[in-house]
């Protein structure tokens, strides 16, 4: 499950999808009849797509994950839009965080030679991109910017925390 081979990636896809739609879908916090805090694991799957994957393919994989989540959330297209954006933004996060001597050619983002702080900032970028885009698409109009901001500010740290914890179990090892 932690490897870079296709089977490991498919297993990871299914495990994260399962966790998202059967466990973390139940998790939501809020007040006054509205929920403001959710847990999204989509960024985790997108972060763990192997580095060698061609960029368009990474975008397509992200889209597939998002649309799968949508089928269970009954919000067809919203998660898919956020995941697609996140999959596209991944390459820029990687470019910003690239170590001085570059990534190892074979590697997926590899826990062994990349520090926890690197993982933290990498996931933070993706989680932030995912949540902001998701809530923008959910509200679908800039007039709801207050709700978008509030939901993003509450959801992003919670999702990031969960993603970092999950990394300990899913971190690919070569």
């Amino acid at each position: 499950m932690g490897g870079v081979d296709p089977v490991s990636n498919i297993v990871r896809f299914l495990v994260i999808l399962f966790l998202q739609v059967f466990i973390f879908r139940q998790v939501s916090l809020g007040w006054g009849g509205a929920d403001y805090m959710f847990i999204f694991l989509g960024p985790l799957f997108i972060a763990l797509i192997p580095l060698r994957t061609p960029r368009p393919l990474a975008v397509i994989f992200a889209f597939l994950f998002g649309i799968s989540v949508d089928f269970f959330y009954e919000t067809l297209g919203v998660h898919a839009a956020a995941a697609t954006f996140c999959g596209y933004a991944r390459q820029f996060a990687l470019a910003i965080l690239e170590p001085h001597d570059g990534y190892k050619v074979k590697a997926s983002p590899d826990g062994k030679d990349l520090s926890l702080s690197w993982w933290l900032s990498y996931l933070a970028y993706l989680v932030a991109g995912y949540t902001i885009f998701y809530f923008s698409m959910e509200a679908f109009s800039p007039v709801f910017w207050k709700q978008i901001t509030l939901k993003s500010l509450l959801t992003a740290p919670a999702s990031l925390l969960l993603c970092v914890i999950m990394i300990a179990f899913l971190r690919p090892r070569i």
């Binding site: 061609p54 368009p56 990474a58 975008v59 889209f63 297209g77 919203v78 839009a81 954006f85 959910e138």
Partner: peptide
């Protein structure tokens, strides 16, 4: 720019799905 075009095409598809299968977004659109 293949990744960008993939992104753009998929994003358009997502917008289409959002507008057609989600009633609040449909109303806003």
């Amino acid at each position: 720019n293949s990744s960008f075009f993939t992104f753009a095409v998929l994003q358009l598809l997502c917008l289409y799905l959002i507008v057609n299968f989600n009633s609040p977004q449909n109303a806003i659109a």
